[in-house]
Nucleic acid binder design. Structure first.
Lengths: 106, 106
DNA sequence: CAATCATATGTGTTAATATTCATATGTGTA
DNA sequence: TACACATATGAATATTAACACATATGATTG
């Protein structure tokens, strides 16, 4: 390995995280949650996805610890245990905008 | 849409970016580049991937503007046009570490 | 405890993506 | 010009992931 090689830590962990975030519907779900806790029915409504599909993606996010379920009666509320994630997403979005600008300039 | 819904901007653009970063070998390539420009042969060596495979992933990264090719004689050097990307990757890695800790605590 | 609502899960199908093999293109040099 | 080297591309296959359908589980209400 070269001395100038950048250390990305465990590439595996990073890539599985990005894989989760790479699915548009999962991103939608995360964004629709925002800083609030919402029942699945809410998520279904705001994302306009099928119940099965939402449940499918929630499972993936849940198992990765990106969302946390909390039962309240018949409903299960989901929230982001660490809202810092939203900041990171914002950073990327911001970078993307800047990056696009540069590309058009160059 | 709820007033508390977090705006992730164009989910589509974000997800295509994450999709690029979700491939372990592409991450490896980005990290192996670091802040330097390197010929493809270097990348092949440090990632231990096949030539075809490296070329395949470089194309994807190139078309998204994440790496930039520059011919020098028979060699083509690739570099990150915007090293800020490495910082973002570092942020995610850092978050991942913290996040893992929390999960074990909780 | 039957009926209903909210959510999850198992299975099969389909679409997307990575990987390899064979080959092409472009560059330097004898 | 012929040859060797660096990299790219096209086609075929393999792997993976999303999605839909049917059904199961768990909670509430009468």
């Amino acid at each position: 390995m070269n001395i100038n090689t950048y250390d990305c830590g465990s590439v595996k962990h990073l890539s599985t995280l990005f894989k989760l975030l790479a699915e548009p519907n999962r991103l939608k779900i995360l964004c629709s949650l925002g800083l609030e806790c919402r029942p699945v029915s809410d998520i279904i409504e705001s994302t306009e996805l099928s119940q099965t599909n939402v449940s499918f993606h929630l499972r993936a996010l849940r198992e990765a610890g990106l969302v946390k379920p909390e039962r309240k009666g018949a409903f299960i509320y989901y929230c982001l245990p660490d809202p810092e994630l939203l900041r990171l997403l914002g950073d990327f979005r911001h970078w993307l905008e800047e990056h696009q600008k540069e590309k058009t300039v160059v």
